[in-house]
Simulated scan of single mutants.
Amino acid sequence: MRTPALALLSAALLLLPASTAWACASCACGDPTLTSMGGEQPFEGRLRLSTMLRAWGHTEGRTGVDAQRLRELRMDVAVAYAPRPWLVLAVNLPLQAREVQDVSLGMERGWGLGDLDVSAKAFVWKDKEFSPDQLVSVVGGVKLPTGPRLHARDGTTLGIDAQPGSGSVDPMAGLAWQGFRGKWSFLASALGFLPSRGRDDYRLGASLRTQVAAQYQPSPTWAVRLGVDSRAERAPDTNGTPEEAGGGFIAYASPDVLFSPGMDVVVQAGVRIPFVNQLRRVSSTPIAVLSLAYDL
Rank of each mutant, 00 (worst) to 15 (best):
T221H: 12
A21R: 10
V282F: 00
I250L: 07
A232Y: 07
F186P: 09
L53F: 13
E40N: 08
F123E: 04
L135R: 15
D76V: 02
R272F: 08
W56V: 01
I160R: 14
R234I: 01
S207C: 10
F186D: 09
V139T: 14
A251M: 06
L204T: 08
A269V: 15
S196R: 11
G141A: 12
Q134H: 13
N239Q: 09
G247W: 06
A7C: 06
P274W: 06
D133E: 10
G182E: 07
C29Q: 00
T157Y: 02
A293M: 01
S26H: 07
L16M: 11
S50F: 01
Q217I: 07
V124W: 10
G247T: 06
A269P: 03
W177V: 10
T241I: 13
P171V: 06
T35W: 04
A23R: 15
Q278G: 15
T156E: 14
G182S: 04
L15H: 04
E244I: 10
Q134R: 10
F186N: 06
P274S: 08
A97W: 00
M172P: 03
V271D: 10
G205A: 11
G45N: 05
A122P: 01
D256E: 14
V138T: 11
T210V: 02
R149S: 13
W22A: 15
Q211V: 10
G159L: 02
A173H: 09
P218M: 03
Q268M: 08
R48I: 12
L290H: 05
R2H: 11
L175I: 13
P195T: 09
E233H: 04
D154E: 13
R46V: 08
M52I: 03
W125D: 04
T20I: 05
W56C: 00
R181L: 13
A232C: 03
A21P: 14
F186A: 13
P42K: 01
V224T: 15
A122I: 10
V100F: 02
G140E: 06
D127Y: 02
S10Y: 06
Q178N: 09
L144H: 07
G64E: 06
R231N: 14
R209T: 11
V224W: 11
T63S: 12
T51A: 11
L105C: 01
G155Q: 10
A251F: 04
W86D: 15
M172I: 07
V88E: 04
T3G: 03
G248W: 01
R54F: 02
V257T: 06
T146L: 06
G110T: 12
D76H: 03
R153E: 13
T156V: 11
A213K: 10
L15Y: 05
L191P: 00
Y216N: 07
T35F: 03
S131D: 04
G182D: 07
A176R: 11
D170F: 04
L6F: 09
L73N: 11
A18F: 08
R181C: 08
D127K: 02
V276L: 14
L93F: 03
A12P: 02
A78I: 01
G39D: 14
G205W: 11
L296C: 09
E72Y: 01
